[in-house]
Write a protein that binds this DNA or RNA. Structure first.
Length: 134
RNA sequence: CUGCGGGCCUGAGCUAUCGUUCCGCUUAUGGCGGAGAGGAAAGUCCGGACAGUACAGGGCAACCCACCGGUGAAGAGCCGGCCGGCCGCAAGGCUGCGGGAUAGUGCCACAGAAAAUAACCGUUUUGCCGCAAGGCUUAACAAGGGUGAAAAUGUGAGGUAAGAGCUCACGAUGCACGGCAGCAAUGCAGUGCAUGGGUAAACCCUGGGUGCUGUAAUGCCAUGUAUAGGCUCGCCUGAGAACGGCCCGUUCGAUGAGCCAGGGUAGGCAGCAGGAGGUAAACAGCAAUGUUUAUCCCAGAUAAAUGAUAGUUUAAAACAGAAUCCGGCUUACGGGGUUUGCAGCUUA
RNA sequence: GGACGAAUAGCUCCAAUGGAAGAGCAUCACGCUGAAGCCGUGACAGUGCUGGUUCGAGUCCAGCUUCGUCCA
């Protein structure tokens, strides 16, 4: 399959799963991004499920929210390779959701550097979970 | 040429690479092809379609509408016309609209004699008193009172003791009558009668209209739990329901209904995109709009699809993202194009 | 997506049939004090915005802006 694709199966979907991530998952902040995630044993149908979002309280216009979501999807798509390489080596299921929490429109270069940090942090958390299981 | 007014249109294009939603094909964890946001998708201000319920019935209440004609599925929309107000040298723009203030009720601050009762001051006059100024009294009158946003139809003449639409002339407003123009609102001219303010975007009265709820409606499939527990009412002399203010009426109603606490599900399909559809032409009409013919199929997601990078077009930038679907209204909007007018200047 | 409500001084809030909008706290000035606090006197400042109706709108009508509530 194509390396940089972000198909429908990789998106975090469904009311139940989303509430599970927000309700019982862990979280950390790499400003201006906040990441909610859970690591599950049961299969989710795909090794990584990711979603993006922006608060309608900070951005009242739908055009601005769509813009942020598109930028986040784009930088995730272009920088996710290390995460997939780690997931290929274990049988854990990762589901996470990235929220943009600043109140001003972001630049793509900034989001790209921050997204790389987020991916590194997620890989680190996955290693810890794998160590606890073994 | 300069400065303005009105109407209409447009709302970036192309190339390469990576990616995305739906559909189709296929050699099928992949590949190929096609389609993929707006003029306002917005606000939710009106009107409908559609669905549920008696395909919605009677009464009260509540709410909405209100010059005339046309248009349309309908409307608080649109088009044309009538009347008034404001702005503008002009072109033109903005805006308002039923009747009743004598159906009734309410309100009109301050000022002013008085804010709706015609009272007060006042003017004239009879009689008496007084030297006089004037006072008391009889009768008549509604002109004058300068304040205010608003003061009993305005001006002039006659008339009178003083006056007054008391009379007359020219006007103002309203009503009635018939005439002319117009489908009509209305306009023009005439005759007669009348003349006690304003406010109904104050309550209200008149006429017309509206049942209510909304696609998360509604119908179906799947998964799963507790046909368990408590309280109350009822079992045909009927609790309650048919949902949205109340009453009546109609229908349903016994394995029944309501409340409390608790348990479970929260996935999928239809609704859902072929429509009061788009485009073009012709015809009818001042126009809104309608008719006919040809042609096209043109988003359909469910944490929710249109993006990123590079190049180029002089510089790519405005407001802004479909969520059941249509018709309008309102609001936001960079740049450009087109058309039609007005004023000023210049030239012929 | 749908249905509603509110906006008054820097802050918390009254009141106002359509007729010149107040209270407490805060701020400032003066007095009191050696100085400050307390106290007393006085001042400042407001109807979210734009139009309309009216002689006159905080109030009535229309359109916007902001904030909030409910259904699910």
């Amino acid at each position: 399959m194509k390396a940089n694709a972000y198909p429908k199966e990789e998106k975090l979907k469904g009311r139940k799963l989303v509430q599970q991530v927000f309700g019982s998952g862990k979280s950390f902040v790499v400003f201006p991004l906040k990441v909610f995630y859970t690591v599950a044993q049961q299969p989710l149908g795909y090794a990584v499920k990711a979603g993006v979002g922006a608060s309608s309280r900070s951005f009242k216009k739908a055009v601005e929210r769509n813009r942020i979501k598109r930028l986040l999807r784009e930088v995730y798509r272009l920088n996710k390779q290390p995460l997939h390489q780690v997931q290929a080596g274990n049988n854990l299921q990762l589901a996470f959701f990235i929220l943009y929490i600043d109140k001003v429109m972001p630049q793509q270069a900034l989001l790209q550097s921050k997204m790389q940090l987020v991916i590194q942090r997620l890989i680190k958390e996955l290693h810890e979970v794998a160590a606890e299981n073994t």
